[in-house]
Design a protein around this nucleic acid. Structure first.
Lengths: 238, 238
DNA sequence: CTGACCATGTAATACGTTACATGATTGC
DNA sequence: GCAATCATGTAACGTATTACATGGTCAG
C-alpha cells in the first residue's frame, strides 16, 4: 500500500498522541517541528484524517482553541474540529512503533520513525538504527561498485558529484554509529524493563544521553534574499 | 509544467549528446552514472523519449549494439532502437544548459545540472552554484528560526534529528563554497573566452582543477547482506 | 530448452498537489 | 469594513509507478 501516506498516518497518530489538535495546526507541526518530510498539503491531510476517523483511531470533537483559556471561555465558537486519539488509535500507534521492517529504514520513513523515538522502546530504536545503517551500507556498496566500473570514463564534475554523494552517506553511517553506541551505553541489560511499561512519561532526557554535539556554526557569506518563491513548505501560500 | 520530467528530458538530452544509445542503456546510465536522481522507470522513460522525438530533438534509428564490433557485423539483428540527438536537439540542450532560473537550484534539478557541468560554461556554472548556495542558506534560515521557536518543547531525539539535518545542509554550503572558489581561481577574466567556442572537447580536466579530495574512507563494521529487497533502482526487477 | 537478461512498450492505477469554494476571526 | 490569517474541505489534474504483454539472445 501507500508509501508516503503511510508516513503521514504514522506522524499524525504520533502527534495526536502528545496532544489533541485540529487539522490546521497538525499540518504546521508536520512541516516545521518534524521539518524532515517535506510539506503535505491539505488535500492530503484532511482525507487522511477522515480515513483515520473511519478506522476508529481518531475521534472528531468540536472544540475551541485549546491553548488559549480566554478564547475557550467564549464557548463553542466555530466549526473547528479537534482530533483526539482513541484507545484503539493509541494501541495501533504503539503497534506501528514496534514494527522494524525493511521499509522502516528508507529515507523519509526513517526520519518519521526517528522523530518519535522518544516514545519508542530502546530495543526497537536500536533495531531501526541498525537497519538504517545496513541500508546505507548497501547503498554505499553499490555506489562504490558503479564508481569502479565507470571511473575514467567520467569527467571531473560527475566524479566530484559522486564523491560528494558517497561522503554524505558515509557521514550518516558515522552518525548512526554514534547513536547506536550511545543507545547501548545507556544501559545494556538483557530485557529492556519489567515489561508492559512501554510509555514512560516523555518530558525529556530519560534516554541515557545522546552524543554531545555543538550545533550551528554559521558559515558566513552570501546573504539569502534572492527570490526563491513558492515553496510548498510555506504556510504563507499565495 | 512538469517538474521531475523536465529533469529526465534534460538528462536524456545530455547523455545522448555524448553518444547515441537505446532506451535500456539510457535508463541504466540514468540510475548509476548519474546515481543521484533516483530511478526512473521505463513507464516514464519511453514516453519521454517519444515526446523528445516528436519535438524533433531526437531521431530513432535501428541499430545493433554500437559498442560491439562483432555484434554489429551480424547486421540489423533486432528491433533495437538507437536514439541520436539531432542538430535541433543539441541546440535545445545548449539552451537548457545556459538557463539559471530559481528552479535550477532545487535538489534533484541541481544534481542534474551539476552532472553536466563538464559541458557548461564557467560563467553559468558559477551562477548555478551560487544560486544553490543561497537556496540552502534560506533553508538554513528557516530551520534555525523554527528551531528557536520550538526548542525546549521538543524531546532529545527530535532535537537531534533537527541538528543533524542542519549540519548536513551546512556541509553542503561549505562544499559549494569550495567549488565556487575553485571555479573563480580557474581563471578570473572578464569574458569567459573568445565567444562562440562554447564546447571545448570534454575529455577531462580542462577545468582549472576541482578542490582536492581523497575519497572513500570506508567506515568499518556491520556487513550489509540484510534483506532489503525490491529497490526500484535495481535493474533486476522481478 | 530453460532461465537470465536484454529490450520495448502500454494500460491501470495510486498518489499528491493545485486550484477552487467557503466562511469565521482578528487587527488595523 | 478590509486584509490577513485561521480553518475546512473537494474536484480536477498531472505525474510517475506497477503490472502486464511481448519477444529476442545467450549461457548452461
Amino acid at each position: 500500500m501507500s508509501r508516503r501516506s503511510g508516513i503521514l498516518e504514522f506522524a499524525v497518530l504520533g502527534l495526536l498522541r502528545e496532544a489533541p489538535m485540529h487539522g490546521y495546526e497538525l499540518r504546521k507541526r508536520l512541516n516545521t517541528s518534524l521539518g524532515i518530510f517535506r510539506a503535505f498539503s491539505y488535500g492530503t491531510l484532511y482525507p487522511c484524517l477522515k480515513t483515520l476517523v473511519a478506522n476508529g483511531w481518531l475521534i472528531e470533537e468540536p472544540g475551541s482553541a485549546p491553548e488559549d483559556a480566554l478564547a475557550a471561555s467564549l464557548a463553542g465558537r466555530r466549526a473547528k474540529i479537534v482530533y483526539r486519539l482513541t484507545a484503539e488509535g493509541k494501541e495501533h500507534f504503539e503497534e506501528l512503533l514496534s514494527h522494524t521492517g525493511p521499509d522502516t529504514w528508507e529515507d523519509e520513513h526513517f526520519a518519521a520513525r526517528f522523530a518519535f523515538f522518544g516514545q519508542t522502546e530502546r530495543e526497537v530504536r536500536v533495531r531501526v538504527l541498525e537497519g538504517r545503517r545496513s541500508r546505507l551500507e548497501e547503498r554505499l556498496e553499490k555506489m562504490r561498485a558503479s564508481l569502479v566500473r565507470t571511473r575514467e570514463r567520467l569527467d571531473d564534475y560527475t566524479l566530484e558529484l559522486q564523491r560528494h554523494g558517497m561522503e554524505s552517506v558515509e557521514r550518516e553511517v558515522r552518525w548512526l554509529n554514534e547513536l547506536i553506541e550511545s543507545e547501548r551505553a545507556g544501559r545494556d541489560q538483557r530485557q529492556p524493563a519489567p515489561e508492559s511499561s512501554a510509555q514512560q512519561d516523555n518530558t525529556s532526557g530519560e534516554t541515557g544521553g545522546l552524543p554531545r554535539h555543538r550545533g550551528a556554526e554559521s558559515s558566513g557569506g552570501t546573504p539569502p534574499g534572492s527570490s526563491t518563491p513558492p515553496d510548498p513548505s510555506d504556510d504563507t501560500a499565495k
